[in-house]
């Protein structure tokens, strides 16, 4: 009678997150601040991306005890990250009953050839993408939500903009293609033909797409929403800023009213300093996170 964990139910939770802000948190106190500021979900992790960059070393799934303590602290959905291809970490997160698993390039990849086969899991997955082919490969593997990758932990929005514009530009171009050309586009993008066909017909991804990687201000959130993101992930941008409570609430407000400059203006006032940032183009190739995964 009851049919649990169908794709509709997995993709449906992402629908419920739309227009919202998902915030990285590392402990109960941050989780409570995020919830009180209006976050629609939190991402529980031991180190935010900017700290992972600074510390170096292998970044793994967070301590389950820490994730559990965050699940106990808030009533909004709790997400957690597994390494690319590390299906055993994902199994642990499923046993913990997190609400969403992020198979994330922010952690050190565990498999350089294969992403996790996400279909057998009851917990839905969100995955990063830099272009349409990558997004559709992840959806083909069972992802129920996509986030454009950006360059996590930099506070630089330029890569997020590049990835959003790339994905949406590629979707638009599919619209004008004939059936024969769609088959070629599927081959060129290394994406499942059925999904390419569906995107060409509907003019959108078959799942919700958020934006991640580099959002540090209310205006950044407004920018990516105007470029077609359906919600935002903010990692280091909130709790590495001078006034996390105020900045968190301001980014939530700007995400709701992204089309109204007066509201984004009001949200931007009096927030103190943003996070310390790094210009993405000054990063060495080996320091980039967005080129992990294929």
């Amino acid at each position: 009678m009851r049919d649990e964990a169908t794709f509709k139910v997995k993709a449906g939770l992402a629908e419920m997150l739309k227009g919202g802000v998902i915030m990285d948190v590392i402990d109960q106190e941050q989780a409570r601040i995020a919830e009180a500021a209006g976050a629609c979900a939190v991402m529980a992790l031991e180190r935010v991306p900017s700290d992972i960059r600074r510390d170096g070393g292998v970044a793994r799934m967070s301590d389950p005890e820490m994730i559990q303590s965050i699940q106990e602290a808030v009533t909004i959905p709790v997400m957690a990250k597994a390494r690319i291809g590390h299906f055993a970490e994902a199994q642990v997160l499923e046993a913990l009953e997190v609400d969403y698993i992020d198979e994330s390039e922010v952690l050190t990849p565990a498999d350089e050839a294969n992403h996790i086969d996400k279909w057998p899991f009851k917990v839905p997955f969100v995955c990063g993408a830099t272009n349409l082919g990558e997004a559709l490969r992840r959806i083909g593997e069972g992802a129920a939500m996509i986030r454009s990758k950006g360059e996590a932990g930099t506070g630089d929005i330029v890569e997020a903009v590049r990835h959003l514009r790339t994905i949406n530009g590629e979707i638009k171009r599919l619209g004008g293609l004939s059936e024969a050309e769609i088959a070629t586009a599927a081959r060129d993008n290394a994406a499942p033909l059925e999904l390419v066909r569906a995107v060409a017909a509907s003019g959108r991804l078959p799942v919700v797409m958020f934006c991640a990687g580099g959002i540090a201000t209310p205006a950044d959130a407004s920018l990516v929403m105007q470029l077609g993101a359906e919600g935002v992930f903010v990692g280091s941008g909130i709790f590495k800023s001078a006034d996390p409570e105020a900045r968190a609430a301001a980014i939530v407000e700007a995400t709701t009213h992204y089309e109204v400059p007066e509201r984004v203006l009001r949200a931007s006032e009096g927030l103190g300093a943003a996070m310390d940032s790094i210009e993405s183009r000054k990063l060495d190739e080996s320091e980039l996170l967005s080129n992990r995964g294929w």
């Binding site: 009678m1 009851r2 049919d3 649990e4 964990a5 169908t6 509709k8 139910v9 997995k10 449906g12 939770l13 419920m16 959905p77 499923e94 009953e97 997190v98 609400d99 969403y100 009851k122 917990v123 839905p124």
Partner: peptide
């Protein structure tokens, strides 16, 4: 319950055309 307990089920609402396919998410 949490997301792993989210489900779909046919639900009788007394509408013409039979039960609706109801999607319950958290």
């Amino acid at each position: 319950g949490r997301q792993v307990r989210s489900f779909e089920a046919p639900l009788e609402l007394g509408l013409e055309g039979g039960p609706v396919e109801a999607i319950f998410i958290r």
